[in-house]
Design a protein around this nucleic acid. Structure first.
Length: 943
RNA sequence: GCUGAAGUGGUGGAAUUGGUAGACACGUUGGACUUAAAAUCCAAUGGCCUGUAAGGCCGUGCGGGUUCAAGUCCCGCCUUCAGUACCA
């Protein structure tokens, strides 16, 4: 019987599904382990071979942990709200729910073919009302919360109301909007209900506010900062402009410090932690208030260098700064307004690209230096960003290169406040080697001391204080789109009201078109049944609005990251209709032990999810405040595009080696038309696309050789490889092993089928090891005996166990594939057919190649599936050491340890000791710590 | 510019973290089996030198250093990739 992977794989995939082999229990005497993949967005293109890389790794680990005796939770689901389905709906009129359902079915089919051990009974879909009911519920919890800086946690909004009615808001230490005005308890108690709501809205963790947002006209929606790459939208690459709009926001800024601190407690890749740290962008310094001369106005600036305050020779405001209009003098008005207009016209992108040109204009107004009381001219310049700090800087040209360049350009004085430093050529920004001069009470101090003193003096004046500034902005949470979670919000008198949790979910209404309305409202503005009846607590027709108690519902939907910010917790109890998850479930599973996914989510999903987790933790809804203990970023699998060279202006194509003799242009062709030696299938190409029907080819050595280019796997480059094809040709076990064999998990690497035969023939050899080739035709008959294993057999097995276990624990799945190959080669050479060896070997291999392992396991006469039970193979006590340590004594003293292979002969030991003595002489009497001996090989001295 | 990761045969990549560099696989070459092909199996395969062998020399981006011993540690460069960017 030969290795018929198609039958074997179909058989076991059916068996696992029929027997619900991988269903995890919510209570078990076994220790728990939670292995999670980032759930996919089900796109219309289906999976390519890059997608399963991380899933295969996590599946190996999950299967390994089951063998180790853990109760493993390994779920999968779909992040199924999102833009592509909606764009497709706009083009075709097809309801996104239908497209999404079809895509999910296709994904599922592809995933099933690879033999993953997912617990599908726990599947979640973010677009399923049963799921987004709880997304809406969490939104309500956020709305009903505020952030208490004293206790450093989120609290219920009722507590804040109690505080306000008792003492007003003058003494509360909270994170809130900057424009809150102060009020006393008495004033609070006299506020109308609407006034109270308006005030509270400024404190809530999700709030409605007019903010400057990133508006993408082509997509017709706002985008969060992390959804913009290089000034254009991440999806589609459309331009983005700044625009003021009333939007829901999430007060993630309240958690900035805790999000930073938490990074020290989790085992995540350093580059990912670094990019979160940069994104949060903490900087320590001081805020300084400058009085504006001849105006009742102040300018607050943030600086990281309060020690250089005596070096201030001008101030710069962002063109968008609200004070600009107030303080410009008549003489400068025309010039300033022209400048502001010119900057407003330039897109964000142009401004970013054009950093070298210095531009700015004087406002005519002066501020007053807090210490010297000297006038400081106020300029505006677009090098100051409205969105960072206060949108204003105190310019210290001698200590900051941008201020220096600006001052040089506009002939502003550059006072030197650094002792013994030459600033005639450039600014001096080195904090560590600073001695301050020409600075009154700061003279002679270093950076640290001067900073402390300057802050103290500013506090004495009431014109500043030490401050920590974060780059992290609150996250905009509204999208003007159809295919997202509806908000559980209706409006009474313009104020947002939450729908009671017991009436959730609020389901997406039907619309006849998925575009914004003619009046510019989001697509939900087209829904005819989209009003909230507070009497019946149901969604009713819009035309009933203002009759009795019927109110308009929110027209925006939630962004893509809403559902993905807590889905990992929902897997723990996915079918619970009473709670987001039960206390028992969350206390049992607690958090994700291993999370595998791409690094592109560093400042999006992974930051938002940590934020929500901390929020849920504050309310005691989850027991830990970091949701994933360990995270691994799998590298991307890249495509290898195939390129043909067309001679310009003709339909002739020239082979790669001859292309330099002609003027050619490069065209990408489908990679399936290329064989392993880069030879093009000419007939295939002619039939592939009409433009190649009459193509002529200039060959070299009778072949057409294509060029190759490594780039992202994408339909438009025709370089996509479908895992289904690999499963059909070689089988899922080969695919799994090969994807691991390709290289280290975390590294990006191009897909290349050249080496796949090596892995496939390993599986064939493995199969043969359990069969006697002399009988039963080509593949032989199954033949495993009860004979005692030889020492060599045991050695091979035990070193394999040791190595594979180390590899899995270190996530070096690529090297354990090699280990298996060596083991099978050795055992074949040893003609081993002992059950004592061959049975445990299957357990080792089963996480990697589960189908073949199951089949051989069954042939060995086992009734139970190899996939579920815990086996002692991985337990230490079962291991016979493949090496032993021998103490060696010299001059009667025991000094050294010889680490020797299991069955070394006397001669070999003697040789080892002699070699050791020889080395001893070379060491001039130094003592090595131990000697490693491998039979028949050189002696190693470890010292 | 800043931050991070990495540079090892023709190729993908190993190397117990300071101890036989190049495991394993692909590819290539030669051979066996075949009328032939596929499949399978065996052997060789970093470079150079000595006719072969035995053996020797050089070899982990470049230049130094520490060490009995460096792909690995230290200093200074070069290159590539990724992220980020007027962040005050």
């Amino acid at each position: 019987m030969s290795y018929d992977f198609r039958d074997i794989e179909a058989k076991w995939q059916k068996y696992w599904a029929d027997n619900a082999t991988f269903t995890a229990e919510n209570n078990s005497i076994k220790p728990k382990y939670y292995v999670l993949d980032m759930f996919p967005y089900p796109s219309g293109a289906g999976l390519h071979v890059g997608h399963p890389l991380g899933y295969i790794a996590s599946d190996i680990y999950a299967r390994y942990k089951r063998h180790k005796g853990f109760n493993v939770l390994h779920p999968q689901g779909y992040d199924s709200f999102g833009l592509p389905a909606e764009q497709y709906a706009i083009q075709t009129g097809q309801h996104p729910a239908i497209t999404t359902k079809d895509n999910i079915a296709r994904y599922r089919e592809q995933l099933d073919k690879i033999g993953f051990s997912f617990d599908w009974s726990r599947e979640v879909r973010t677009s399923d009302p049963k799921f987004y009911k709880w997304t809406q519920w969490i939104f309500i919890q956020l709305f009903n919360s505020w952030y208490d800086n004293n206790e450093d946690r989120a609290r219920k909004i009722e507590d804040l109301e109690t505080i306000f009615s008792a003492e007003g808001n003058t003494n509360v230490n909270v994170v809130c909007d900057e424009d809150v005005t102060e009020f006393t308890a008495e004033e609070w108690n006299n506020f109308s209900s609407k006034e109270k709501q308006e005030v509270l809205l400024k404190y809530r963790l999700t709030y409605l506010a007019e903010t400057e947002v990133n508006w993408c006209p082509q997509l017709g929606t706002v985008l969060a900062n992390d959804e913009i790459v290089n000034g254009v939208s991440e999806r589609g690459g459309y331009p983005v402009v700044r625009k003021k709009m009333t939007q829901w926001s999430m007060r993630i800024s309240a958690y900035a410090q805790r999000l930073l601190d938490g990074l020290d407690t989790i085992d995540w890749p350093q580059p990912l932690k670094d990019s979160q740290t940069n994104w949060i962008g903490r900087s320590e310094g001081a805020s300084v208030t400058f009085n504006v001369k001849d105006h009742d106005a102040t300018i607050e600036v943030f600086t990281t260098r309060p020690d250089t305050i005596f070096g201030v020779s001008f101030m710069t405001l962002a063109p968008e700064h609200e004070l600009v209009q107030k303080i410009i003098t008549k003489a400068q008005k025309a010039e300033v307004e022209a400048y502001i207009e010119a900057t407003a016209k330039r897109s964000e992108r142009e401004r970013m690209a054009d950093v070298k040109n210095i531009s700015g204009v004087f406002t005519g107004a002066y501020a007053e230096h807090p210490f010297t009381k000297e006038p400081v001219p106020i300029w505006i310049g677009d090098y100051v960003l409205a969105g960072y700090g206060t949108g204003a800087v105190m310019a210290v040209p001698c200590g900051d290169q941008r201020d220096y360049d600006f001052a040089k350009h506009f002939d502003i004085p550059i006072p030197n406040i650094f002792e013994g430093i030459d600033i005639s050529e450039e600014a001096f920004a080195d904090k560590d080697n600073t001695v301050i001069a020409n600075s009154d009470f700061l003279n002679g101090l270093n950076y640290k001391k001067a900073t402390k003193r300057a802050i103290y003096e500013l506090e004495q004046l009431g014109q500043g204080e030490g401050k920590i500034n974060y780059r992290l902005r609150d996250a905009v949470f509204s999208r003007q789109r159809y295919w997202g979670e509806p908000f559980p919000v209706y409006y009474v008198d313009g104020m947002p009201q939450m729908i009671e949790a017991k009436h959730l979910p609020i389901e997406l209404p039907e619309v006849e078109k998925y575009l914004p309305t003619e009046t510019g409202e989001p697509p939900l503005g087209r829904a005819t049944v989209w009003a909230w009846d507070t009497g019946s607590n149901t969604v009713v027709d819009n035309d009933k609005i203002d009759h009795k108690a019927v109110f308009p519902l929110e027209l925006n939907t939630m962004p893509g990251w809403a559902g993905s910010s807590y889905y990992f917790n929902r897997y723990m109890d996915p079918n619970n209709e009473e709670e987001v998850f039960s206390k028992d479930a969350i206390n049992y599973w607690k958090e994700v032990d291993l999370y595998i996914g791409g690094s592109e989510h560093a400042t999006g999903h992974l930051l938002y999810a940590r934020f929500w987790q901390k929020f849920l933790f504050d309310h005691g809804i989850v027991p830990v405040d970091e949701f994933a203990k360990k995270l691994i970023n799998q590298g991307m699998i890249l495509g290898t595009s195939a390129i043909v060279y067309r001679i310009s202006g003709t339909n002739q194509y020239v082979s790669k080696g001859l292309k330099d003799q002609y003027e050619t242009e490069e065209l990408r062709v489908d990679v399936s038309l290329i064989n392993n030696s880069n030879e093009l299938n000419l007939e295939g190409l002619r039939n592939w696309q009409p433009q190649y029907k009459d193509a002529e080819f200039i060959l070299e050595e009778n072949k057409y050789i294509v060029g190759r280019e490594v780039e992202k796997m994408s339909k438009r480059w025709f370089n996509v490889v479908n895992p289904d094809d690999i499963c059909n040709d070689y089988g899922a076990d080969t695919l799994r092993l090969y994807e691991m064999f390709l290289g280290p998990l975390e590294q990006a690497k191009p897909w290349n089928t050249a080496g796949i035969t090596g892995v496939h023939s390993f599986l064939k050899k493995l199969w043969k090891l359990y069969h006697s080739p002399l009988e039963g035709g080509q593949g032989g008959v199954f033949s495993v005996s009860e004979t005692e294993p030889t020492k060599d057999n045991l050695k091979t097995l035990h070193k394999t166990i040791k190595k594979v276990e180390e590899d899995i624990e270190n996530f070096s799945f690529n090297t354990s594939v090699s280990t298996f190959m060596i083991a099978v080669n050795e055992l074949t050479a040893q003609k081993c057919n002992s059950r004592t060896i061959l049975e445990p070997l299957l357990v080792l291999i089963s996480p990697y190649a589960p189908h073949i392992a199951e089949e051989l396991w069954q042939k060995l006469g086992n009734k139970e599936s190899i996939s579920t039970a815990a086996f002692p193979v991985f337990e230490e006590k079962h291991l016979v050491e493949s090496t032993k340590q021998y103490p060696i004594s010299f001059n009667g003293k025991m000094r050294f340890t010889l680490e020797l292979s299991l069955d070394l002969s006397k001669d070999e030991i003697e040789a080892a000791v002699m070699a050791h003595e020889k080395t001893q002489q070379q060491l001039n009497g130094r003592e090595p710590k131990k000697v490693i001996v491998v039979p028949g090989k050189i002696v190693n001295v470890v010292g």
